[in-house]
Simulated assay, not measured.
Amino acid sequence: AEQEAEATVSSVKREYEAKGRELDRRIGEAAKQSASLKSERQIISEDIEQRATAKYLDQKKELDRKFKAQTASYDSFLLGLLLYG
């Protein structure tokens, strides 16, 4: 009975150690994946920021161009009125 109990305890210890190693391996993989995902998230955030900045600058240039054209039109109209008067 004593040998059987020792064999059972030994078997349980081996199984526990194997599961512990498997858990450590999975924790290591999860940490690597987490670091990889953080890196990807940072890259994506930077890409989004660059695209947003580019779009903002394009829209600003377009609005500036339209504003200048409209201002020139008003200036011409006012000059015409002044000359007419």
Rank of each mutant, 00 (worst) to 15 (best):
F67T: 14
L83S: 11
K60D: 10
L79Q: 13
L23A: 14
K66I: 00
G85D: 07
D24R: 13
E62G: 00
I44T: 10
A35W: 01
E40M: 05
R25C: 01
E15F: 02
I27M: 07
K32E: 15
Q42F: 02
K61Q: 15
A31D: 15
T8S: 05
L37E: 15
S36Q: 14
S34C: 04
D58N: 10
A69W: 00
K13N: 06
K60V: 12
E40V: 03
S36M: 05
L81M: 13
R26T: 08
D24G: 06
R26Q: 13
S39L: 07
Q59C: 04
R26H: 04
A54R: 10
A30H: 03
I48S: 05
E4P: 01
E15M: 08
A7F: 07
R65T: 10
E40Q: 15
T71S: 11
K19M: 05
G28W: 02
A30T: 03
Q59E: 15
R51K: 11
Y16N: 12
K55G: 04
G20Y: 11
R51S: 05
E15D: 13
R41T: 08
L23G: 02
I48N: 11
Y74T: 12
S39P: 00
S76C: 04
D58L: 12
D75I: 10
K38T: 09
V12C: 03
S34D: 12
K61T: 12
R14E: 06
D64K: 02
Y74N: 09
F77I: 11
E6P: 01
F67W: 14
K68T: 06
D75P: 01
S34Y: 06
Y74C: 09
E49L: 06
A54F: 03
Y84L: 15
T8G: 02
E6K: 09
E29F: 01
K66C: 00
G80N: 15
S73I: 09
I44M: 13
E49T: 11
K60N: 08
L79D: 10
L63D: 12
G20W: 07
E29P: 02
I27Q: 07
K68Y: 05
I27A: 08
Y16K: 14
F67N: 13
S34T: 09
S34H: 06
R41H: 07
S10D: 03
S39Q: 14
T53S: 12
A18G: 05
V12W: 03
S39D: 13
Y56Q: 06
E22R: 14
E4R: 04
G85V: 11
S73F: 08
E46H: 09
Q33V: 03
I44D: 07
E6R: 08
L81W: 04
D47K: 09
L83M: 09
S11T: 12
Y84W: 13
A1L: 09
R21S: 08
Y74K: 14
S73V: 05
L78Q: 07
A31M: 03
D64T: 03
A7D: 11
A52W: 02
S76H: 08
S39I: 00
D24L: 06
E6V: 02
E4K: 04
L81N: 04
A54Y: 00
R26I: 00
G85I: 01
E49K: 13
L78W: 07
G85E: 10
G28I: 00
S34K: 13
L37F: 10
A7M: 04
E2R: 05
Q33A: 11
I27H: 04
K19C: 00
S11A: 13
V12M: 06
K38I: 04
K60C: 06
K32L: 12
L23N: 10
D75Y: 08
I43Q: 13
R26S: 07
